[in-house]
Design a protein around this nucleic acid. Structure first.
Lengths: 229, 229
DNA sequence: TTGAAAAGCTGATAATTGTCATAGTCTCCC
DNA sequence: GGGAGACTATGACAATTATCAGCTTTTCAA
């Protein structure tokens, strides 16, 4: 049995902070805690979601299969983020698949609890709305990057993003390690192209690598590259 | 003086339909009607918005300047859509520029009126939330298309989108005429590339053109092209 | 009406990116 | 500890897309 939502620190980072004590109690009573192994799905594109997932630990990739057979990773969601909110709010099937990038601990909150609060507590609804507005802005920015920047720039940006959002370990490697394939699915390119560019970055001294792990060596140059020299 | 919001048909298509009679009256009393000429901006990226724009007539392109100096059109908003909502909800400066694609008639609704209703009427907030959830899904889909489809596929898709969302005129041309440059900014490519592909489509009998105007001739083949043959 | 500016078009060429093939390396399970 | 399978890496080549240059057509305002 997981701990009580009322005491959960994770809540500070998402819209659940706008809930009243009673509402939180209802969430706590109806939630179930799950462990998801690396590589396993929380849900898949097209699934009917019966609730949302609040991430306590680990990272999930939200991706969509394109008609060319390749996955495009649209977002990485980690501690504190609520996954599946969009589908529940819109009362639609999942538009994206959510797959664990590493081992995860999540709380599943049934949609009834969420919907009930959405109808009763305008502050909560407004908070969810603000979060979604933020996600939408980010998505718009991704559209611009995807369509206007080169693969090289997008990979450089991805590394900077990983550093800013997940930090580095004690040895200066990015704390979140993605496979080369995942990286290529984030930036929307062929795996071989991503590998080639990563090698090039390494040769130029922008990054250092060790197996899958990547560390940023020259952040300033990476930023310049993203901006276009 | 524009007509009363209470009687405005446009309202049926957006979140304003969740407003009470009194709230609508407040909107009606505080709104101002504006005419925007083709090519003129409603607002520009970075502007602080003092309200939202409800489109009565015409179409606006929502775009963002990339660091490479090119504009990326992220969305086309037409009759019934509310522009600027995201920025007002998130209390941020505009992330996108809104420029009239043809002559527009819009109602400007001050943000105070919107914010007041957002805090008082959960149904309205929920309705706005649902709309934003829908926009987010669309944005995610655009990300996938931009990163996984070829320019040819994206142009074909753009034409189908224009037909489905804006219809055709009596001569079988797309009702919304975009310049070649706008088309290239929608699909995220160089204007010359867009023109070349449009010529190719014409040669292959997929479309017919007359000046800027484009008409769809073989919809099935266009769909096949988008799906990847 | 006309002439300048903007938009559309096309070719040549370069740069970017994808695909296919092959080989090395790592991982993990028996 | 060894071997199958997944992941990483690199080369060769093809396809896609961008860039530059020059030209024609359209548009629009004086």
């Amino acid at each position: 049995m997981g701990s009580r939502c009322e005491n959960c620190i994770v809540r500070q980072f998402n819209s659940l902070r706008a809930m009243s004590k009673e509402e939180l109690k209802a969430v706590s009573d109806s939630k179930t805690t799950k462990t998801i192994r690396k590589g396993e799905p929380l849900f898949e594109e097209g699934d009917k979601l019966n609730g949302v997932y609040c991430v306590r630990n680990g990272v999930s990739k939200l991706s969509k299969l394109s008609s060319n057979g390749k996955d495009q990773i649209v977002k990485l969601a980690s501690t504190g983020e609520v996954i599946g909110q969009r589908s529940v709010v819109a009362q639609e099937c999942a538009n994206l698949s959510a797959i664990a990038v590493n081992d995860m601990e999540v709380c599943f909150i049934p949609k009834e609890t969420i919907n009930h609060t959405l109808q009763k507590n305008p502050n909560f609804t407004l908070e969810v709305l603000r979060h979604m507005a933020h996600d939408l802005k980010e998505a718009d920015d991704v559209i611009v990057n995807m369509s206007q920047k080169t693969v090289k720039q997008r990979i450089a940006e991805a590394f900077l993003y990983l550093k800013n959002n997940f930090g580095e370990d004690e040895n200066g490697f990015l704390a979140l390690t993605l496979s080369r394939e995942d990286i290529s699915n984030v930036v929307g390119t062929a795996t071989e192209s991503a590998i080639r560019i990563i090698s090039e970055f390494k040769k130029k001294g922008l990054i250092h690598t060790s197996g899958k792990k990547v560390g940023i060596k020259n952040e300033r140059k990476l930023v310049e590259l993203v901006e276009g020299f």
